Every structure is written in structure tokens, then in C-alpha cells.
Simulated scan of single mutants.
Amino acid sequence: MDFDFSDDQQQLRDAVRKWVDKGYDFERRRAIVKAGGFDRGVYTQLAELGLAGLYIPEDQGGMGMGPVEGMVVMEELGRGIVLEPLAQALIAGGVINGYAPAAVKSAWLGKIAAGEALVVLAYQERKARYRVDVCETNAAKSGDAWSVTGAKSIVPAGDQADAFLVPALADGQMALFLVERAAQGVTTRGYATQEGGRAAEVKFASSPATLVTPDGLTALEHAVDIGIAAACAEAVGVLDKTMDVTVEYMNTRKQFGTTLASFQALRHRVADMKMQLELARSMSYYASLKLNAPAEERRRAMARAKYQLGVAMRFIGQASVQLHGGIGVTDEYIGSHYFKKLTQLELSFGDTLHQLGEVSERMQDTAGVFA
């Protein structure tokens, strides 16, 4: 199997890395955090690079690319710990293109690709505990019109988004709807998240909604899996940079008249970190390559990948802080912000313990090794 990236994929990686290096340095990120954790101008720049339309067909204004290109982009954004939720554009583009009727596609895909509309997934509820099949939000139909009533938590950039993808129960079965933030009955309460980004609590009170698909659970599972693959790739980028700053610090910081990198015990710790990084990278590749697999196979793969990434994020993040000492947790030092981002990603789309449970429940007699 050929794991080399194509020339187009390498060029895409280079373009995103150059933008991160030149247009999203640590000082700009710090300013965005102070301003609330989301910058519409930055999101527009990402869209101008074509990134918001990665999973949207060319005839709808997108780039018509696939999961590997999405992985490449998210890795590079992770290296810059970019706050703006591009992963939500990948989710919205993939789900609307895959499940919505033609009228919804025509109305929204072009705007998502152009960055004119930020559509985010609003699915988490307080009682769900990461389970996608738990939903108390309800949908009601009057004539041909739908309305949604309920509440969703920790919605990425929820008070800045233009619309939401909302799972809700319609006659006892989960369906997926699109609700505009400006619609009647929609209220948001935004707040900063611990890594510097932005989220919101969103409430719907008989809010007008557009039906995306009546098979909401299937679409929601796919949406979450796109999010997991994106989170895994983003985490690899963050882990790469965490390793870089840790090794640089050990090569310059002196103790007892010599650099930290000269101590064998610490070199062994870095070797363990490198092993975890490469395990994480391989599982991120696995997740992206399985993103278009049949649903049951895809769900198993995402749980495995997210579990391994969670283990790696915790190990490398904590080891980096320990190797740095006190400076590793100061706000002035970039390493602490990588650690915060890893903590946030570990909790996104199901934490490590949840994913371990998913792996256990989906385990087969052959563990997937033999036919």
C-alpha cells in the first residue's frame, strides 16, 4: 500500500503551512483569544484558500477533495493551534452534500465553500454523555413547515455561526435539521473555552427549521466521524509542535552546567514521546482512510483511532510539561497553549474512556484481523 502523498496533497500542505507561519503567528492568536476566541476575518481567509469547500463538489463551488486532503489541512492548522473551527465546515459540507435534498444543497453548499456561511454541528446535550443516540430536542411539523424546540451545549462558535445542523426527534425518530441562527426563537450564550476558542449554549423555541434528512441518526454518526477524523489529524499537528518545542527547550536549557538533552533518562522520556507520536500519526491515517468505509466499519475505526489519539495526547502533553518544569504551564509560553489544545481535543467527540467503551462494544470475534 502506498502511503506517500501526491504532489497535489503536498502542495496543499505547503500552502496551508505557509499561511499558518505568515498569517497566524502566536501574537495574532493571542489577540484573537483576548477578543473572544473567534475571528471572522481569519475564517474568511481559510475559505479563500478553498479549505471550507474541501468536501464540497466543484459544481457547488467547492474543491471536491476527500478525507486525506482534509487530514493534511487539519494537521497544518493543528500546528498553528488555529482557533477558527474549520472542522465544522468539513462536517457541514460532507453531511449536507451526502444527505440533504437538492434544494438544500443549492442553498447552502456554495455559501459554505465561499465562507459566507459558517454552519456548525449542534448535537451535544447535557444528558447524552457523548452518546449520539440520546436526544431530547423535538421537531414538530405544521403543513410543510418544521420547527425545533430544545437545547444544545458546547456548540463550536455557536454565537458566531450562521446556522446549525441540529438532530431532533420527529415522531419519535431522530431526524437532522438545519436551523439559522437568525431564526425566530433561537438564543445563544457564548463563552470562551479553556484552550482559547469559543463555544455557546444554544436554545431553540419553536424555531423554523429545514429538514436535511429523516434518517438523522445515520447522518449524525457520519458527522461525528468526520469530526473525529478531523480532530485526530489536528491533534497530530499539535503533537508535532509540542515535540518540537520540547526538544528545542531541552537542547538550550542548562542544568548543572550542561543541557537537559544530555541526560539519558530525559532522552528516554523523549523517545517514549516520539513513539506515542508515531502511533498517533498512524492511527490518524487509519481514521482518514476509513472515513468512506461502510458505516459499521467506519464507526469501529473512528473509536480505535480516537482512543489511541487520546492516550498519545495525554502522555505527550503531560511529559512535555514535566520536561519543561514550571515554564511549561505559564501563559506566556506557547507550550502551555499546545497542552490546553490537546486537553480540549481529547474531550472532543467522545473522550478516551468513552472511546474505549466504543471499541469494546464493537469488538468482533476476530478483532478485525482475519476475514
Rank of each mutant, 00 (worst) to 15 (best):
S106K: 14
S284C: 14
P156I: 12
E234D: 08
M250E: 00
R304A: 02
Y249M: 05
A295P: 01
E125Y: 03
M1F: 09
D162K: 04
C135N: 04
A301H: 15
I91K: 06
F204N: 04
S142C: 02
A305M: 15
D59H: 10
G62N: 03
L347C: 10
T252F: 00
E58I: 08
S262E: 13
L51K: 01
G335L: 06
N251L: 14
V245S: 03
Y333Q: 15
R304S: 04
M174T: 05
L211S: 01
G197H: 01
M313N: 13
Y24I: 02
K254A: 09
R300L: 06
A265G: 01
A151R: 14
G36D: 02
D225T: 03
A271Y: 08
Q264N: 08
G310F: 12
A151S: 12
A371Y: 14
R79N: 07
V20A: 04
V359P: 11
Y24M: 07
M273A: 02
K22Q: 12
E125M: 07
G143E: 05
I32P: 09
G115Q: 05
A295R: 09
V42I: 08
Q322I: 14
Y338K: 11
A235T: 01
T149A: 04
D244H: 03
F315M: 11
G115H: 05
A303W: 05
A113L: 13
D244R: 07
